[in-house]
Simulated assay, not measured.
Amino acid sequence: MASSCSSEWRVRAGRLRERWERLQEGRGGGDAALLKAFTALQRLEAACAESADHPSCLGLYSQALLDITYFEENCLVDEEFPGDDSLQKVRELIEMLSEPESLAGGDHQQNVVLDVEVEECLQWRRGALLYMYCHTVGERERWQLRDPGAFHQCLQDGVQYLLKMLHTRNPVQLDDKVSFQDVNTAALLEKGIFSDVHMLALMYCGEMCYWALRYCRDAEPPSPHTGDPHFKDIGEKVLDTYVGACEGPLRGQGWSTQNAKKILQYLKDEAV
């Protein structure tokens, strides 16, 4: 079993190495993200050579994957998702970023769980990538969407990834056994806000709910999709949390509520 598992990881590491080399030979020479990815690849390849266990290889593979796709995502964002194939490229990256979860839940003798920070990052990266794609395309097309069905699907998926990211860790329950000297930090943790990225996820999620209701109300998803998010309810909840944090524990820290409040008013005025 160990030999078979090791062989599988060597194949995966080889595919990542080939992808890294194509990017490096193209336009990525000397890029900091690719240099970081190279270090992660070396650690993964060393672990494969030593026939390391599945959890160790999964952690190293996830990190190498995150570093390599980060470079590709940045290129798409910087170039504003050019060409008619940009959505296909986005979907390919999302598929790659979904692989560690699949591998963690695969048929293995031991229960494998991704590190919580890795899990959060995988969810965040997929949700944020879809947010940036929808924002860029929506603005470029002045929200007269050429393919509202595909756009709607991107919003659905993006909201779900961001919600999963926000719920990867449970809020801290404050009681007599858990206390913080900084009351503002305690208030944020109690709301499930552990970093600036969590604040961005709340805002991104709210905006995507708004776009879905305002610009895609009549759009039919290209394929049946179960578990569709309730955009109005989700949007109100995440933006209420965002505004409450900005005007409470994060007051004076540079977080703006202007757009969030406009969107909230729109959502609250919407008929159910």
Results as ranks from 00 to 15, higher is better:
residue 11 V to I: 11
residue 15 R to S: 09
residue 17 R to G: 00
residue 19 R to K: 08
residue 19 R to V: 15
residue 22 R to T: 02
residue 25 E to F: 11
residue 26 G to R: 13
residue 27 R to T: 13
residue 30 G to L: 14
residue 30 G to S: 02
residue 33 A to I: 10
residue 37 A to V: 06
residue 38 F to K: 06
residue 41 L to E: 00
residue 44 L to M: 10
residue 44 L to W: 02
residue 45 E to P: 00
residue 46 A to L: 11
residue 51 S to I: 15
residue 53 D to S: 10
residue 54 H to T: 11
residue 55 P to E: 01
residue 57 C to W: 02
residue 57 C to R: 06
residue 59 G to H: 07
residue 70 Y to H: 09
residue 71 F to T: 03
residue 73 E to M: 15
residue 74 N to I: 14
residue 76 L to A: 10
residue 77 V to R: 03
residue 78 D to H: 04
residue 80 E to Y: 06
residue 83 G to T: 11
residue 84 D to G: 07
residue 86 S to W: 10
residue 89 K to H: 09
residue 90 V to E: 03
residue 92 E to F: 12
residue 94 I to P: 00
residue 96 M to G: 00
residue 97 L to W: 03
residue 98 S to Y: 05
residue 99 E to D: 05
residue 103 L to S: 02
residue 105 G to W: 06
residue 105 G to H: 03
residue 107 D to E: 12
residue 108 H to V: 13
residue 116 V to K: 04
residue 118 V to L: 14
residue 118 V to Q: 09
residue 124 W to V: 12
residue 126 R to C: 09
residue 126 R to D: 07
residue 127 G to Q: 09
residue 128 A to N: 04
residue 129 L to I: 12
residue 133 Y to A: 11
residue 134 C to W: 04
residue 139 E to S: 06
residue 141 E to D: 06
residue 142 R to S: 12
residue 145 L to V: 08
residue 146 R to S: 07
residue 147 D to K: 06
residue 149 G to H: 02
residue 150 A to D: 01
residue 151 F to K: 02
residue 152 H to P: 00
residue 152 H to E: 12
residue 152 H to N: 07
residue 153 Q to W: 07
residue 153 Q to R: 08
residue 154 C to G: 03
residue 154 C to N: 02
residue 155 L to N: 01
residue 155 L to Q: 03
residue 159 V to E: 01
residue 159 V to R: 08
residue 159 V to Q: 05
residue 160 Q to W: 12
residue 161 Y to D: 08
residue 161 Y to P: 00
residue 166 L to P: 00
residue 170 N to L: 15
residue 170 N to A: 15
residue 170 N to Y: 01
residue 173 Q to H: 12
residue 174 L to H: 00
residue 174 L to R: 03
residue 175 D to E: 04
residue 177 K to Y: 14
residue 182 D to S: 07
residue 183 V to H: 04
residue 187 A to D: 03
residue 190 E to V: 15
residue 190 E to Q: 15
residue 192 G to L: 07
residue 193 I to N: 01
residue 195 S to A: 13
residue 196 D to Y: 14
residue 197 V to F: 15
residue 197 V to K: 09
residue 200 L to F: 10
residue 201 A to S: 06
residue 201 A to I: 15
residue 202 L to C: 07
residue 203 M to I: 15
residue 204 Y to Q: 10
residue 205 C to G: 01
residue 206 G to H: 01
residue 208 M to L: 10
residue 209 C to E: 04
residue 210 Y to P: 00
residue 211 W to I: 15
residue 213 L to T: 08
residue 218 D to E: 13
residue 218 D to A: 14
residue 219 A to I: 15
residue 220 E to I: 12
residue 220 E to A: 14
residue 221 P to H: 06
residue 225 H to M: 12
residue 229 P to W: 07
residue 230 H to N: 10
residue 233 D to R: 13
residue 234 I to Q: 05
residue 234 I to L: 14
residue 234 I to D: 01
residue 236 E to N: 04
residue 240 D to C: 11
residue 242 Y to I: 15
residue 242 Y to G: 03
residue 244 G to I: 09
residue 249 P to S: 10
residue 249 P to H: 07
residue 250 L to A: 04
residue 255 W to A: 08
residue 256 S to V: 09
residue 256 S to K: 02
residue 259 N to S: 12
residue 262 K to Q: 04
residue 266 Y to T: 08
residue 267 L to C: 02
residue 268 K to D: 04
residue 269 D to I: 12
residue 270 E to N: 04
residue 271 A to F: 11
residue 271 A to W: 11
